[in-house]
Amino acid sequence: MRLDIENVTVDVAGARLVDDLTLRADSGALVGLVGPNGSGKSTLLRCVYRALRPTAGAIRLDGTDLRTLSARDGARRLAALPQESTGEFGFTAAEVVAMGRLPHQSAAGRTSATDRELCTAALARVGAAHLADRNFHTLSGGEKQRVLIARALAQQPAVLVLDEPTNHLDIAQQLEVLALVRDAGLTVLAALHDLNLAAVHCDRLYVVAGGRIVASGTPHDVLTPELLADVFGVRAHRVRHPETGAVQLLFDRLPATAP
């Protein structure tokens, strides 16, 4: 399923957080949003998963405006993992994952054998099957993140929106989660903080600064030393991964400029 964000603008309390932003995620692609803190990435993603209504513009799934879909129909097509998730306290990990099946259930909310099988499989796919009976609030940050990703997978969406999905994960878990997301066959739009992870896993990158797209293309084309100096204020050295050939970055501070 293709995701199109068309000329989206977001104004909040007189401040323009997103300014006439347009991007596309083709069906089955993993598209990354990168940019400095406060650049508008999370604000844009909140519009995509309908936690925030844009001031102008449209967001479409295979040409259908999201605003025309009911909450249930939207949730059958698109799942999201925000930076901060609340409301799961008091539930077990298995119960949290089962919430992903709600859009597919009848008004009675009865859980079927198929629902249970899908939830069990989702927990296993993210390496969290052993957490099923644990209370969600007792889990570590990384464990919670894996459970929430399992919930999104159990929802069986066509589009997955992720806001910093590797937060709280150790290095091995970061690599495993992004590989899992990539292999799921979904259209994925993800805000990523780690540029090296973005370079390895994303098909296409959009660089956001000041609420606008300042560059887009493949990681190799986008992550240039010149752009990284302008947007992130760092000096970057590009190297090739010895096995995959993907561009990887080494960073240091920009030289101080003379007064």
Score class of each variant (00 low, 15 high):
E84R: 13
S112F: 09
G74V: 01
A172Q: 15
G74A: 11
D221N: 10
Q248V: 06
T218K: 10
L178M: 04
R238L: 11
T68S: 15
L131C: 12
A132Q: 14
R53H: 06
V8M: 03
V18Y: 02
F251E: 09
L186H: 00
N196C: 12
A128R: 14
H137W: 06
S42W: 04
E84A: 13
E226D: 15
P54Y: 10
I5V: 15
H237V: 14
H201F: 15
R182Y: 06
G245D: 12
Q156S: 03
D183S: 15
E243T: 14
Q173P: 05
A229H: 12
R116D: 11
L33I: 10
T138V: 07
R146G: 05
I59S: 07
R16Y: 06
A184M: 04
A80N: 02
A108P: 08
T187P: 04
I5H: 01
V34E: 08
R2Q: 13
S39Q: 05
G35Y: 03
R46M: 05
T111L: 15
Q83A: 11
S27N: 10
L192Y: 09
R238F: 08
N7C: 06
V159P: 07
E95V: 07
H168C: 10
A93P: 06
S216I: 02
G127L: 01
V239G: 05
T9G: 04
F89Q: 13
S70C: 06
V222D: 07
F136C: 09
L192R: 01
S39R: 09
Q248C: 11
G40P: 03
L3H: 07
A98Q: 13
V97Y: 04
D4N: 07
A79T: 04
R50W: 03
V126T: 14
C47D: 05
D62R: 00
L21D: 04
E143F: 01
A122Y: 00
G14Q: 04
A98H: 05
V247I: 12
A98L: 15
G245K: 02
K144L: 08
L81T: 09
L66T: 15
L227K: 14
I5D: 02
A51H: 05
E164M: 14
R16K: 12
E164W: 13
V207P: 11
V234Q: 08
L69N: 07
V31W: 01
L17I: 12
R2A: 03
L102E: 06
L139T: 08
A79S: 12
G109N: 10
A79D: 02
T111K: 10
A258V: 13
V96Q: 11
D65R: 13
T257M: 13
L139F: 10
G185V: 08
L197S: 01
A29C: 09
L17F: 13
N196E: 13
G87W: 12
T166C: 11
L44W: 02
G233I: 11
S112H: 07
D4L: 09
A158Y: 00
V234Y: 08
L254G: 14
V181F: 02
M99Y: 13
A158F: 00
I5E: 00
V181W: 01
A93T: 10
H130L: 06
L44N: 05
Q155G: 00
R72K: 13
D170K: 14
E176F: 14
V239F: 12
R72Y: 08
V96P: 04
D183C: 03
R101W: 06
D73I: 03
G141F: 04
L21P: 07
E84G: 00
Q105N: 09
L186C: 02
A15D: 08
D20Y: 01
R24K: 01
